[in-house]
Design a protein around this nucleic acid. Structure first.
Lengths: 180, 180
DNA sequence: CACCCTGCTGAGCAGATTGTCCAGTCATCA
DNA sequence: TGATGACTGGACAATCTGCTCAGCAGGGTG
């Protein structure tokens, strides 16, 4: 039973179609990242070369960005997480970006729709320490106002597997046809 | 020149102290995740057994949660990211959580300070598709109101290296003394 | 219809890496 | 001063990787 061969790379404007084997590969890799290509081929029931080729393709297509270590800020001594919405003075966006990039406690920063707004994820050593971090963040002329929400519980920790599985299913029964 | 040996594991209430070698190890691993223990030991200038022991300790202490593949939703066909703030009806928190956990496009969900508020990260196939996702999310009785911010640019993509380096430096010159 | 291309399989090989020992050295701690 | 913990440097067998090859099957093309 040839696994793939219902194979025709459909690459949309952005985004690459994933088939079921790709999805199983990613899920397997997410659950047991330390296993090698040989072991994966055994688990998935395909040839080693196939796994190797799939992995290479997934990586060169950018679906798999990498295998970097997932570091837990809490274990590092930063158990407090917060999201801050920042209101930026017109035209100061680039400066604010550069400023926030220098603050280690800023784990990510996005510009969002709305009037010069940004959203950033912060961590701190304690609730008290969060004040220091916020002062660091806000203590910059380009920032007009900041409102902060402290995270109490990670109801759904960052995940990707459900989306991968849906993407694989969408591929089998294409919702809307791609342009030929 | 013995690398470590200024070594005394100080584990706070939460969080483990990281020394400079640990930090270098994590940074190296983040930059080139595919290299093995042997290669790491060469780059870091320490014995292979040391790298192995450090890695084991970092993992069992939870600092390194794992090495799962970092999947890019955009490459999967979900280039639109948004953050939604949800206002929850009193006492419906658990139900809402369970509901949102079933939606693949919900990549993460946090409960935050404030009156029954939650913050979630969404992805969608397009701005139009985002409407479908939001309807999916909000179409649940426990949710009173939702306000959405679409991400335009990842000014600072999720990162951890600066924090790791700061944690390592903090260890060398302890800010506040641990209880003896 | 014949032909080509792509993806998958199964196999083989040399070289590198891993897991797991060990003994010895050095600094810190009781 | 003795005990403990961390690191080094070396060794071994077992395993895995990177790479190559030929063959097969399905889909698309001239």
């Amino acid at each position: 039973m040839t696994a793939g061969v219902l194979y025709r790379m459909t690459i949309g404007e952005r985004g690459m179609a994933i088939d079921h084997l790709d999805a199983r590969l990613i899920v397997l890799l997410a659950r047991e990242p330390r296993i090698g290509v040989l072991e994966m081929s055994r688990r998935l029931g395909v040839a080693r070369g196939t796994v190797q080729a799939r992995l290479d393709r997934l990586q060169s297509n950018g679906v798999i960005r990498g295998f970097g270590p997932q570091v837990d800020p809490a274990a590092l001594g930063y158990p407090v997480t917060a999201f801050a919405t920042l209101q930026i003075r017109q035209g100061q966006g680039a400066d604010v970006r550069a400023h926030l990039a220098t603050v280690p406690e800023v784990l990510e920063l996005h510009t969002t729709t709305g009037s010069g707004d940004m959203l950033c994820r912060l961590v701190a050593r304690s609730n008290a320490d969060l004040q220091r971090v916020i002062d660091l963040v806000v203590g910059f002329e380009g920032i007009v106002r900041a409102s902060t929400a402290i995270v109490m519980e990670d109801a759904v920790p960052l995940r990707i597997i459900p989306l991968v599985e849906q993407a694989a299913q969408d591929r089998e029964r294409p919702g809307r046809p791609e342009k030929p």
